[in-house]
């Protein structure tokens, strides 16, 4: 023990409160770990910055009104990305229409109705596993289930449904978590006034969970927009220089287009590739930003 009573009085200074060697060691350790954790965070953030920076520098000059709104030309070595942009929007929209109602409803069942038993736990486990299935496996499932078995052919519908299956776990988990973040006390209050589960969900639980649900939906949008594998065999075309007119058409898509011009088109200028990548990542970042803004907007309205 380096601590002894009355030290301070002896020297006339407040030695009683001076740092002991033990304090010094604790401070050094504390500093070390702070530096360590900070460094890890930096390692995480720096690549994102570099990627975006490189894309901005090399792809930025390619971005123009012309680039965004014209068709590819000269065997995809020039021109724009308009059909791919439109195709991605189709894919995102149709897959949302399929995945959101199913996902939200399933999450409501699991969170608000399902008894806590082995079956429910099994379902939850299955959902987590579904989220871990590689996207190429989803793609093969999509080919079997939607393209061939359901007879949709390679089409926006088949591709969107494949994407929907892939993003379902995301929607379910986000929805379930935001439902469970609604305090139990609100539900108890409702049930105690004789409200049924559904009345409780409709009037209290859902309105308070909506911000989290929307966040999950928007995150699934950005995932949908960025995926290549699931649409490669199910509906995305190598080159389809028309805008789709129905869900049974094939389409081009941003992620697929980037893959194609990077690997399969000899002589495609780098500028084109970087421009496409920049457009895609900007689209995704914008959607994420929107989701963050929207969530904080809805949070701000809550008072509990």
């Amino acid at each position: 023990m380096t601590y002894s009573e009355g030290d301070g009085g002896v020297s006339g200074q407040s030695l009683m409160f001076a740092a002991t060697p033990l304090n010094m060691r604790n401070h050094r350790l504390q500093w070390l770990f702070r530096a360590l954790f900070g460094l890890m965070t930096l390692i995480l953030v720096v690549p994102v910055g570099i990627i975006f920076g490189v894309l901005l520098v090399r792809g930025g000059p390619a971005i123009s009104f012309e680039f965004l709104f014209s068709y590819p030309s000269d065997g995809m070595t020039a021109g724009g990305i308009w059909p791919a942009l439109v195709g991605t929007m189709w894919l995102v929209a149709v897959s949302l229409i399929a995945s959101v109602p199913v996902g939200v409803a399933a999450a409501i069942y699991l969170s608000e109705y399902a008894p806590d038993n082995w079956l429910t736990r099994g379902i939850n486990l299955a959902i987590i596993n579904l989220a871990g299935v590689p996207s190429i496996v989803h793609a093969l499932f999509g080919v079997g289930a939607f393209v061939i078995f359901a007879g949709f052919g390679t089409s926006i519908l088949a591709a969107s449904l494949t994407l929907a299956v892939m993003t379902l776990p995301l929607v379910i988990v986000a929805t379930r978590e935001s439902l469970q973040a609604v305090p139990m006390a609100f539900r108890e209050a409702c049930w105690n006034m004789g409200a049924t589960r559904w009345q409780t969900i409709r009037t209290v639980v859902l309105p308070n969970a909506i911000s989290g649900i929307l966040t999950g939906v928007i995150l699934s949008v950005s995932r949908t927009a960025g995926e290549t594998a699931p649409i490669m065999f199910t509906g995305a075309a190598f080159f389809f220089p028309f805008l789709p007119s129905s869900v049974f058409d094939q389409t081009m898509a941003m992620a697929m287009h980037l893959f194609v011009i990077s690997t399969a088109v000899p002589g495609a200028p780098d500028e084109l590739k970087y421009g496409t990548a920049l457009t895609l990542i900007t689209l995704v970042l914008l959607m994420n930003a929107a989701s963050i803004w929207f969530r904080s907007y809805l949070r701000g309205k809550k008072k509990w």
């Binding site: 108890e188 209050a189 006034m193 209290v204 309105p207 008072k303 509990w304």
Partner: peptide, 13 residues
Amino acid sequence: VGMVFQRPNPLPL
């Protein structure tokens, strides 16, 4: 048979 809880739990309405 109404109930009042330990912690006031007005609904967020």
